[in-house]
Amino acid sequence: LRDLIDRSERSRGAIATMGRLPSQRALAATLDRCENAGHGGHAPIDEVKNFLRLCRDGKVRLPEQIARHGLRLIKSKEAKRKLNDSELWLINEQVCYALLDTGEIDEATMIVKALSKRFPKSSRVLVLQGALCECCGDYDKAEEVYKKILEENEAHQGAWKRLCCVAKGRGDEEKAVKTLKEYLDVFCTDAEAWEELASLYLSLSMQKQASFCYEECVLIQPQNPSYHLKYADSLYSLSTPSTLHLARQAVGYYSVVLDLTNGSSVHAKYGLLCCLDAIRSQGRGSSSRLTEDEQKLAAKCARELEADYQEKCPALLAHLRATGILPSGT
């Protein structure tokens, strides 16, 4: 019973993290039906198949749920009869990555062996073999596998990215940066790779380089509010009393986030108020004065932020006011 309760809680948590796009709502509903199946606790094959497809199409990472339902699916004789060959092996690959994420090495090894037997010359299966080696801590073997793939196809994106993961796994972040930069010299429009490079730079306390990477993300995917938010955060972090123009730039990007999220981003509101407060308190002379539009924006964000805290977390409202970022009169 405790296990069922824990599962239900985890599924609700996973669903809660999803956005409001139609595809995300469909995924949340399908996952809920899979997690709360009444007949023996086993979700219908079609529901599980649909859930796995939605995860693949949306590039959603829910390893525990994918591993649990997917593993049951690929072990089911009935499912094997219903699935066509290509879909069955695609699901095997998807479930294997989920098993590696959750640390279920024995089950993952079983799938890798089956895939290797079915597709002995597949580079995708080789990448899986390398990922399995990584999971077991054998980074030398994993690196050997990825380099073998790149010898045959130097433009194999998966192998390049896994090489970066090998360097990170060894704790060699500088080599991970070098590998990812080499990759981006070829695949310069890969926003996820730029984001990962930014994360590596931040771990090395290289704020300016990280900010450049987030700017590239914004240029590649201008409709993604997450990238605008991270770029705004980096600009605010770099701003000083002598570079307050960066804080003003950050205000612009936080405003874009609010436009893209219909004003629902608490993070953007908080960041925007922090920037305007920095301009007021750290600026000198005319540079410390907010424009009329900035004053209106600050007042609007302060009202909405207080309302958000009052509704969702009233216990922290006093702490919000104590920060001093709220303009007077709100």
Rank of each mutant, 00 (worst) to 15 (best):
Y146Q: 02
S281A: 09
F187V: 12
L62M: 15
V251C: 12
S288G: 07
K168W: 11
K178I: 07
L200G: 00
A108S: 01
P222Y: 11
Q295H: 04
A198C: 14
V48Q: 00
A114R: 13
K300Y: 04
L150H: 10
S211C: 15
K148P: 01
E47F: 07
Y214D: 03
S234R: 13
E196N: 13
R61S: 13
Q207K: 14
Y201K: 12
L126H: 09
A14T: 15
L305F: 01
D172T: 09
G58P: 00
I91S: 03
R289M: 10
Q94E: 13
Y183P: 15
C55T: 03
D3G: 03
R68I: 06
I220P: 15
L100D: 01
L320Y: 03
R12L: 15
L219F: 11
S288F: 02
I74F: 04
C133Q: 14
R170K: 09
L184K: 14
K178W: 06
C188Q: 04
G38E: 03
L1A: 07
Y231M: 14
A108Q: 04
Q282T: 01
S23M: 11
S265G: 05
L126S: 10
G41L: 08
K148T: 06
R56W: 00
D140S: 02
D46I: 01
L326N: 00
R25I: 15
G169R: 04
T102F: 05
L1N: 06
A14G: 15
L99A: 07
G58A: 10
V257T: 05
G324V: 04
C313F: 10
Q129L: 12
E9Q: 15
R124K: 09
V251I: 07
A37N: 00
D3I: 12
L31H: 07
M110H: 11
Q221A: 14
L90M: 12
G329M: 15
E174N: 10
E144S: 11
L316C: 09
R321H: 10
E173K: 11
D138T: 00
C188G: 08
A28F: 03
E182F: 11
